[in-house]
Design a protein around this nucleic acid. Structure first.
Lengths: 150, 150
DNA sequence: TATTGTTATACTCTATAACTATA
DNA sequence: TATAGTTATAGAGTATAACAATA
């Protein structure tokens, strides 16, 4: 199926960059919506995943891993602490530091967030056949690993 | 060295939704960077394209087409007017309205923006083979047409 | 009363810079 | 002096509400 003559005018809006931008924004908004009952926002999920992947890391180390500045990572961790999802464990060797520890509740929240993300994927990809979904994920993953900021 | 929990931890970041979100954000930022010499921002480009596609439309009609609220579309059109890209033509039949008219300079700016967008696509998709790029564009387009907000 | 365009305002997100307490 | 964490603050982006002119 060709849309060859379809729109010279929409060349811009038919670029991969434009479509990625619009689809990504829509995906984030929908994810935020579904996440709300958990008291989480999309940003918290990436952080929770990082905390699980880097046990007892310092706050700034987590920020660097996520490319988030210190002044932004602190209130995000405040949020998770208020939810009981993490503990700030004082580092006795270096009393400036806190080691961030995932609580059982935090692990459960991450699990629920993952379930929501997977469910949302089914919705986002509903118009694709099963093999097309795999193809899309593979191609997006290929783009992600190439990007300067994964 | 293989961490069994690692794979599970990255489920969230391997969803299509997450990857679309991150890639879309990166694409927008890079587009903004390359657009800067023209005095445009990414949102001006979608607006310029809409103006070309809807000659002499009212400001609010353009806003509705782009799903942008009136209080946001006005300063965007202010920007384009300041650049000489559009004219606000008073509607003599309904003196509340302005018809938005693309100027030759505006058409030229849109053309340049399109060239930049196409060039950026080559960069974004550099890690894909030619047939993979076509496949990705086709799949993204399929997702876009399904979305509530194209 | 309703509608077009506009301004005022508020809220979020993000980043820079300054500050504290340790090292 | 440098670093971990924190707070203050300012800048964009975006949305709601109020408003003026006109229909």
């Amino acid at each position: 199926m060709y849309y060859s003559t379809m729109k010279q005018a929409s060349h811009l809006t038919n670029t991969a960059g434009y479509m990625l931008s619009k689809l990504g924004q829509a995906a984030t908004e929908e994810f935020a919506e579904r996440l709300r009952p958990l008291g989480l926002r999309p940003r918290h999920c990436g952080l929770l995943a990082a905390i699980r992947g880097m046990p007892m890391a310092s706050q700034l180390a987590l920020g660097q891993a996520l490319n988030v500045v210190p002044s932004a990572i602190v209130p995000m961790i405040d949020d998770l602490e208020a939810l009981g999802a993490i503990n700030r464990v004082p580092d006795e060797a270096d009393r400036r530091r806190y080691a961030i520890q995932l609580t059982p509740k935090g692990a459960a929240l991450l699990q629920q967030a993952m379930a929501i993300a997977l469910k949302l994927d089914d919705v986002i990809l509903a118009s694709l056949e099963k093999d097309e979904r795999d193809t899309l994920r593979r191609l997006l993953d290929k783009l992600s690993s190439r990007s300067p900021q994964g």
